Simulated assay, not measured.
Amino acid sequence: MPDIHHLEDTTPAADGTTLAHQTRGTGHPLVLLAGQANNHHWWDAVRDDFHPTHRTITLDYRGTGASDKPEAQEGYSTRQFADDVIAVLDALGIERTDLYGTSMGGRVAQWVAARYPDRIRRLVLGCTSPGGPHAVERPAEVRRALVSPEPGAAEEALTDLMYTPAWRAAHPGPYGTLGDPGMPPHARRGHLRASNRHDAWDALPHITAPTLVLHGDQDRLTPPDNLPLLAARIPDATTRLFPGARHAYFEECRTEAGEAVLDFLNGASR
């Protein structure tokens, strides 16, 4: 087993916002990016799976965790989150890294890889979409369920979108993928706007890193029809679909997904 190191630190973003980031393990760097309105605990259930070969780096997005939670007139954006990732890499002295983003983190990862191609060795995009008019959006009934005013209904709807009933029965939680409970309302709105306004369609062909695109075939939060869209738009992209899995395929199909990611990351470098 590798010697696991733990490092908690903060660094300023370009605009002075304090960003909290966390480093675990040794080996080649791998940045893990969480979903919308979540902090680094999104990865708690599977993070150790990457440590045999990689040092993992996470961050608390602005608005989450131990990072600052500024109010911004224009809200937050996935481009801004991407710049925050680069600020963390610079602070850690990491010139080139592997990058794995899921859900909104996959949207952020698209910008990192397209705008800073020299910084990314290999890219993994999970349960995500290109955004904008080309994306396949979630059904209207899913959107309504996520804003239900009934007590507990929205959280139950989100949990059901993340995991199948059978998996939940065997893994009763708590779950680290249901949002950061410490986020103020303005930050939640900012994250929602950032994800909803994402549109990287024109930037995707500029990604130069070999890319793996992953999705659960029962995902109704981000429909799996987005997988072939991304793969066709990104040069040198391959795909993997996990039968029976919902949005949190990386937990429900932990063994298969983890092995697929590590096999890809540890393949021959270009």
Rank of each mutant, 00 (worst) to 15 (best):
V142T: 15
P52S: 10
L30Q: 04
N266R: 13
A135T: 08
D98P: 03
P184E: 01
Y100A: 12
A200I: 06
R115L: 15
R254D: 08
R115W: 12
L227E: 14
L229Y: 11
A200H: 04
L30V: 00
A37S: 11
G35T: 05
D3K: 15
E156Q: 14
V85N: 12
T102E: 15
G93L: 02
H6W: 09
V142Q: 13
G63C: 07
V112T: 05
L33K: 04
L33A: 07
I86C: 10
L89W: 00
Y116Q: 15
S148M: 11
V85E: 05
D199L: 10
E259K: 04
L92M: 07
T97W: 00
A109L: 02
V108I: 15
T238Q: 14
L30T: 00
A203F: 10
W42V: 04
A154M: 05
L241D: 06
P165G: 09
P29N: 06
A260D: 12
G176L: 00
A231H: 09
I4H: 10
A154Q: 05
E259F: 01
H21F: 08
R233P: 09
T239P: 05
A13M: 04
P235V: 05
R188C: 07
P228M: 05
D90C: 06
P117G: 02
A268G: 11
G105Y: 11
H198W: 05
P149R: 06
T10K: 12
A82K: 03
A268C: 12
A170D: 08
G25A: 01
D217Y: 07
E71T: 07
L19S: 11
V261F: 00
A194Q: 02
V46Q: 09
A154I: 11
D199G: 06
I94R: 00
A37G: 11
G35K: 00
Y249D: 04
R233D: 12
S269K: 09
A154L: 10
P210F: 02
A187P: 01
A268N: 13
N39P: 05
